[in-house]
């Protein structure tokens, strides 16, 4: 869980950094996209990513099932212990935030990777992915949906980042936990800025 989760976070950081190039103009973004898909290594990277994602959510679902089975009869009154406890809304809803991501990712890949192929007017043979992104996020419902899902990703990482270091045997520290939460916030805000800016600027990015 920890290893796959952290690897997925590393991917997300790369993904959002690349996406932010959309603010650097048409050429920068489309050239970046072109460089990615024209590199034959892309298939290896995609297969690796798929493997990480699948093993993460399969283990997540199996472990959650085991954890529920471990207490067949629950408490009638169930309070938080307080004190040293780090239990939070984020930590108790990992399976829910995870399942939202599981539903989201195929839709997301379908919308962009397998979405409309526009050819760049300026650079023939290059896909104008930027146009597709801008068109997509001009729809208010689409933008709103993305903002919500991206916030849920942040929520998953709010607990997930620090938790992974404990699972991997590295250790817990308040500083590391805070760092993870700051990272979750930065990743989320960076991702959300894209649909939001496009929508608010009415596509005139």
């Amino acid at each position: 869980m920890g290893a796959t989760g952290l690897s997925l976070i590393a991917f997300l950081i790369g993904h959002v950094s690349g996406n932010l190039l959309i603010f650097a103009g048409e050429h920068a973004f489309n050239a970046y996209g072109h460089a990615l898909i024209s590199n034959p290594m892309i298939y290896v990277a995609e297969a690796g990513l798929l493997l990480l994602f699948v093993s993460h959510f399969v283990t997540g679902i199996v472990l959650t099932k085991e954890n529920r089975d471990a207490r067949p009869i629950g408490y009638q009154r169930n309070d938080r212990a307080g004190g040293a406890s780090r239990k939070s809304l984020a930590s108790t809803t990992m399976i829910l935030s995870g399942l939202v991501l599981l539903a989201f990712v195929p839709l997301h890949v379908n919308a962009f990777k397998f979405g409309a192929f526009y050819e760049s007017a300026a650079e023939p043979g290059v896909r104008d992915l930027r146009r597709l992104v801008i068109e997509t996020f001009s729809a208010p419902a689409y933008t709103a949906g993305y903002v919500i899902v991206l916030a849920i990703i942040g929520f998953h990482l709010w607990h997930g980042f620090g938790s992974a270091f404990e699972s991997l045997g590295v250790g817990y520290s308040k500083a590391l936990k805070r760092f993870g939460q700051a990272l979750a916030l930065i990743i989320t805000v960076a991702f959300i800025s894209i649909p939001l800016v496009i929508y608010l600027s009415e596509g005139a990015l």
């Binding site: 212990a81 607990h159 045997g169």
Partner: peptide, 27 residues
């Protein structure tokens, strides 16, 4: 028994205040 999801409710109730650092050590 279930699996640890690093929420430290255990440390909060432990009468001997044993730290979750022992869980990391176990891992």
């Amino acid at each position: 028994f279930g699996n640890c999801t690093n929420e430290a409710e255990c440390e909060a109730v432990c009468p001997k205040e044993i730290s979750t650092a022992h869980i990391t050590k176990l891992n």
